[in-house]
Computed example of a mutant assay.
Amino acid sequence: MGCVQSSGREEAAGKVEEPPKAYSWDRKDKVDPADFTLEGLRGEEAGRVPGSINGQQFIIQNCQSSQIFLLDHINTITIDDCSDCTIFIGPTTGSVFVRDCQECVVVGACGQFRTRDCCRLEVYLLCQTQPIIEASSKMKFGCFQAFYPQLKDHFSKASLSVFNNNWSNVYDFTPVDGETNWSTITQPSALPHAFPLPRSQLLASVGLSVEEESSVVPYTLGSPQYHGQEAALVILFHDNDQHHKATTFIAALRSQVVDCRIQHSREVKMEAVDAVRVFQGSEHKAAVSQGPVIALLCLGTGVHQACTTLARDMGAYVTPDSSIGLRQIDSFFSYASMSMTM
């Protein structure tokens, strides 16, 4: 009996206790909310450089007379209780929500944009859906225009298209009879005058520009009607080089048509039945099935002939220079508008 008991004690003493299992979710780096918050700034310049936000949520609150630059891609952002500030917001996958702010200039790109209880904001925007204002007044909206070397990559990481911009299609959730709570800014020179660039060495070194000529987002006029002007809708079908083709097309068109303007740009997925309705035939059913199309509504003297010539080398479609073409333009943007809410 004594020998048996001794053997059991020796086995117990020889056992090595195994450490607890470590799972991948236990090894995640802890996020410090302070790294993703700017609060209580007074007459200061502050921000984040590429790689410092990296798709996290961000908060800006209770800032006055300050310049803020978030030069990275972001998940969602809220801006609360700020006044007399200029704020640059890098590509944001989800929502930008601005509340209780006044006398600010905001430049941003996002999936959704909303304001509540705001007054006298200038917003230069790229928005994939319809911007919404609520209980807000004296709002001005313009087209996003910006460049820094990593910006195109940040758009990709945020899953935003530079060609799908609904900046001027604003919905006022609380309209007031006899008053207009928002208006549009259609001069690309307005943003450089309203938005000072970074001065601190760290932020300035990123190379931010807000000039139209260098912007990665095409400058569009937005909502004003195009009827009565020479117009052409150009459709670039999906392939691996589609975005480059669209950018090259716009640059070439502007060099050929002195008064060229891009009224709208959209990137949307079309079903075969939608292609038949828009193009009034089945010729392009196979092409739209390959992926999203990029559409550019171009205006200017001689723009239709110039678009037709350029599109021939790119395999793009240009609406006819006739009443049929105008109906196709209306039909496409009616479909694009509906697709935003789906």
Rank of each mutant, 00 (worst) to 15 (best):
P149G: 00
I133H: 00
F155L: 07
F155K: 00
T129D: 09
S136V: 04
I132W: 07
M139D: 10
Q130F: 15
P149K: 01
K152W: 08
K157V: 03
E134D: 15
F155E: 03
G142V: 12
A158F: 09
I133D: 02
C143A: 12
G142M: 12
I133E: 06
Q145N: 05
G142A: 09
F147H: 13
P131F: 04
T129H: 10
F141K: 02
K157M: 07
G142R: 03
C143M: 07
K152S: 09
S156T: 15
Y148E: 01
M139Q: 11
I132G: 00
I132T: 13
K138H: 14
T129F: 09
K140P: 01
S137P: 06
G142E: 11
K140H: 14
E134P: 09
T129Q: 12
Q150F: 04
P149M: 03
F147V: 02
K152V: 11
M139K: 03
Q130I: 09
F144H: 13
F141R: 02
K152R: 09
I133Q: 06
Q145E: 09
I133C: 02
P149T: 03
S156V: 12
P149Q: 04
T129Y: 07
F155H: 02
A146S: 09
C143K: 04
Q130A: 11
P131G: 01
S137C: 12
T129L: 13
K152Y: 10
T129V: 05
G142S: 07
S136H: 08
L151I: 01
F147K: 05
G142P: 09
F147Q: 03
M139C: 04
T129C: 05
K152Q: 13
F144N: 02
P131L: 10
F155V: 03
D153E: 13
I133F: 01
K157Q: 11
P149L: 00
I133N: 06
S137G: 12
K152T: 13
I133R: 00
F147A: 02
S156L: 14
Y148W: 14
K152N: 07
